[in-house]
Design a protein around this nucleic acid. Structure first.
Lengths: 338, 338
DNA sequence: ATTTTGTCAGATAACGTTGTCAGATTCGAT
DNA sequence: ATCGAATCTGACAACGTTATCTGACAAAAT
């Protein structure tokens, strides 16, 4: 276990001052090519790696990006993390993952995380990407941030999103095109910004077909399996049950599917079910679930890219980036019975 | 955006030298109670938080713990992360999450991560907790590490695990107690250490009942849904199909369940299915899956605790910590038909 | 009263890097 | 040859903290 080589070790090996080594390593100009190569060779020979703490101390830049979330959805978080991580690593940055408990004082938690870690920037995933107090803290501390799929205030700062409204519209159209008319909708968690947009897309598609979902075909859910199941029970037990149910996320759709099974209704023969997110479970379940794919990893890749540019004081080409969604039509949807 | 308060700001507010502040904040002795309280009050008033970079620079301790994984299982990783994170935060540490690609040179990747981040310690999750070259690098660099659920060399360093063999034994006993005799087994990924142990537990339980699984009732899987499905097809299409199948993890069990459904076999009436891990999907699926619960979060909490103690140069009470598993008997297992 | 011991507090040096500035060298133009 | 400008290089300070040493003071022992 030998000491890590420092910049001075490289300097003496390359027979230059340690400042010159610093210049070479940071790609600064004014170094002769011959010297540059000598330094590079020495650094490589010693397998030198700069001390991130020392760098952070002087420059204020920690080369650390925070990934903040409060999301019980495992696959979402992991996929998001992976996307961010990939970009970070390529740029020599690292990711500090920090769960936040949005029940308690979010602003305080975030302030703690930021100031103890001196993060260069943070990625805010839903639902905290819509937490106004959290955003206020970030602004006050002057910390760069990119929001993933926020609902409100897309103009007010960098963010990455898909067009939830258009996606919900497209998925509803898919159901309408199959011939469904009585379509139920399970609303998402009221605190998640996307919920309202998905509802709007659903309603617009219905209206475009001259239809309107009845009040008993619109049930509030909370993005959980259980809430989907109870919503499913409620809609499918009624007299005029819908022939298709669109749940605002996959977990609720799986809940609806469980309810259908308990009630002895075949999917998709008697009732079609669709979700939103394209989680792994949507691919695995039986029948596989028709859903909307959000490019979660690409979104977080883009976010990390933006933050790294920002911390290098570059201007962002586009602070509000919209990525494409994709409809994944699978086995859980089919033409209505009769 | 005002500058973060430094230790000197606290010092001048409390009217002591900045070194005294440092003493108070680090809980060092030789500070009068009155002074200590004055300093604490000043620190609180300024909302002072130490600069982690400066600390890391001087002490060599980064207060950063690495969480290394190469595991396609989302829920496992997230739950593990959460457990570690919780402990870290309480102790003022942070977690750097680093996926590793075990296809390529693991040792080199780890060396890069460690030396660029100066991690105080790393948590190694399966399957890399069994990668000998990775362990060799960690030893060489003198980085503290705790392995989660390793197979090999439990004596050779700190680790946390459950008794996979006993758990597989207990679950197999559960099937035997229900009256099953023809029990199939889907083996885990050969690179994961737990696979061999789970197989051993299964075989011991079978032997204890005077039984032995035939070769066509033992199929190699790879911990994926797809491998489980193909294994299920193979076992359930044969002439003497088993009345119960025990898959070495939940994903494969779900695959077996899908295969059963495709073959028109009712679960659990015609065939019982059991898994291992108690993933979220095991609770959600229909019928819900009988499985073994590993306390993944508790395991990682313990690992983080151990690393923090180690970085404070404390001795570990027990470098090889065994936690308890739990059998979750659910709806996917029942008495055999007939 | 004087010495010894112990407790408390401060001054100063380090940690490894980047920023600032000044000095040295090279080159082209007079 | 001589100067000016550009290019290159190095010395030194700075970042915010902890470690080490040294000094001041009080209490206890002579």
């Amino acid at each position: 276990m030998s000491r890590q080589p420092t910049i001075k070790d490289v300097a003496s090996k390359a027979e230059v001052s340690f400042k010159t080594v610093s210049r070479v390593l940071n790609g600064e100009p004014h170094v002769r090519k011959e010297v540059r190569e000598r330094v590079l060779a020495a650094a490589a020979a010693l397998d030198y790696r700069p001390n991130i703490a020392a760098r952070g101390l002087i420059g204020g830049r920690s080369r650390l990006i925070g990934f903040l979330y409060d999301n019980p959805n495992y696959s979402y978080v992991t996929e998001a993390e992976l996307g961010a991580l990939q970009v970070c690593r390529e740029a020599g940055y690292h990711l500090a993952v920090e769960p936040v408990d949005s029940q308690n004082d979010v602003a305080r938690q975030i302030e703690q995380i930021i100031s103890s870690l001196r993060l260069d920037g943070v990625i805010m995933t839903p639902p905290i990407s819509d937490d106004a107090s959290a955003m206020a803290v970030l602004d006050r501390l002057g910390v760069a941030h990119v929001r993933i799929a926020p609902n409100a205030a897309r103009e007010s700062g960098p963010c990455v999103f898909i067009d939830d409204e258009a996606a919900a519209f497209a998925l509803t159209r898919h159901l309408l095109d199959l011939g469904h008319q009585a379509i139920g909708f399970v609303l998402g968690h009221p605190d998640h910004g996307a919920s309202a947009l998905r509802l709007a897309g659903f309603e617009r598609a219905m209206a475009s077909a001259g239809l309107q979902a009845g009040a008993d075909h619109m049930v509030q859910g909370y993005f959980t399996f259980e809430s989907g199941m109870s919503a499913g029970h409620r809609m499918l037990s009624g007299a005029d049950r819908p022939t298709a149910i669109f749940a605002a996320n996959d977990k609720m759709a799986l809940g609806v599917m469980a309810a259908a099974r308990e009630l002895g209704l075949a999917v998709p023969d008697q009732v079609s079910i669709a979700g939103f997110d394209d989680t792994r479970a949507a691919q695995i379940c039986s029948p596989s679930l028709t859903t909307v794919r959000q490019p979660v990893d690409a979104m977080c890749q883009a976010a990390a890219d933006m933050l790294i540019s920002m911390s290098a004081n570059e201007d962002l080409a586009d602070p509000a980036l919209q990525l494409d969604f994709e409809i994944r039509a699978r086995r859980s949807t089919a033409a209505p019975p009769g």
